[in-house]
Every structure is written in structure tokens, then in C-alpha cells.
Amino acid sequence: MPGYEQDLKTDPPCHPRACAIQDCLQRSGYQEDKCQKQIDALYECCNAFYQKNGDDASCVSCPKAPLLRLKMKQRGQTG
């Protein structure tokens, strides 16, 4: 979980990662494929959030835990 400790302490958790996606999308003309690095970073932060707080935890910046794991699996990220 290195690098995500600070993001987990923000309110809401992982919010800076979600903002980075929005900024990237605006800069790229909403071409999601150009923002995949930022999307992956959010997923990693959210995964760390659920590992720390349990799958029943809630975070407005993150998809629900089962959906997050499905998205990470589709992206080839380990969870």
C-alpha cells in the first residue's frame, strides 16, 4: 500500500485520485484511454481503502468493493 497512506487520510478517502482523473479527462478532451494511469491509481487507492476498512465500508470516490475488483481484474491489476 505504499503511496496511498496520504490519500486514505483525505476526506473523502482517495479524493485526490478521483480529481486527477477529472483533470486528465478535461485536458484530453474526455478520451478515457489517455487517462488510464490516473484511473488505475484510483483503483489501487480504493483497493487499499477496502483492505483497511473492509468491503462494507463506503467511499464516495470509489466504486463498491465487488465492482472495483471486477474493474481491476478487467484491467489486469492484482487485487
Rank of each mutant, 00 (worst) to 15 (best):
A41N: 12
C19G: 15
L25K: 02
R17C: 08
C45R: 09
K37M: 00
D55K: 13
K52N: 15
M72R: 07
G54C: 10
C35W: 02
C14V: 15
L70D: 00
G29T: 10
F49S: 11
H15W: 13
R27N: 02
Q38G: 07
Q51M: 14
L25G: 01
C45D: 03
A65V: 13
M72W: 03
C62H: 09
L68M: 13
L70T: 06
Q38P: 03
C19R: 15
Q31H: 09
N53F: 15
C19Y: 15
K64W: 09
G54Q: 12
C35H: 00
L25V: 07
A65C: 07
Y30M: 07
D55S: 12
F49A: 04
D40P: 09
G54R: 08
I39G: 04
D40T: 05
M72G: 09
P13I: 12
Q31F: 01
Q26D: 05
Y30Q: 04
D23L: 13
S58F: 13
C14L: 07
H15E: 15
P16F: 06
A57M: 10
L68Q: 08
I39H: 04
S28G: 01
C14D: 11
H15D: 10
F49C: 09
E32D: 00
V60Y: 08
I21Q: 02
Q26F: 00
N47M: 06
A57K: 06
C35Y: 01
K52V: 14
S58G: 05
A57D: 08
F49I: 06
D40Y: 03
V60H: 08
P13W: 11
A41L: 14
H15S: 12
A41K: 07
K52M: 12
E32N: 03
G54H: 02
K64D: 15
Q36C: 05
I21D: 00
K71S: 10
Y50L: 06
F49Y: 11
K34S: 04
C14K: 09
E32L: 04
L25P: 04
S58L: 15
A18H: 13
S28Q: 01
D40G: 05
Q51L: 13
Y30F: 14
P12Q: 07
E32W: 00
L68I: 09
L25E: 02
P66W: 14
D33N: 05
Y30L: 03
G54K: 06
C46W: 02
R69W: 15
P63T: 07
P66C: 02
N47P: 05
N47S: 06
Q51W: 10
A57F: 10
S61I: 14
A48Q: 07
D56T: 05
R17A: 12
V60R: 10
L67D: 13
C14H: 11
Q36Y: 01
K71T: 07
L42E: 01
R69Q: 08
L42S: 00
L68S: 03
K71E: 02
A48R: 11
A18E: 10
Q26W: 05
C14F: 06
E44W: 10
Y50C: 05
S28E: 11
Y50P: 03
G54W: 13
F49T: 08
P12F: 06
Y50F: 15
P16A: 13
G29M: 11
Q31T: 02
D56F: 11
E32Q: 03
C45Y: 05
R27V: 01
Q51F: 15
L42N: 01
P66V: 13
A41C: 10
D33C: 01
F49M: 04
L25T: 01
D55Q: 13
D56M: 07
N47I: 03
F49G: 01
Q38T: 00
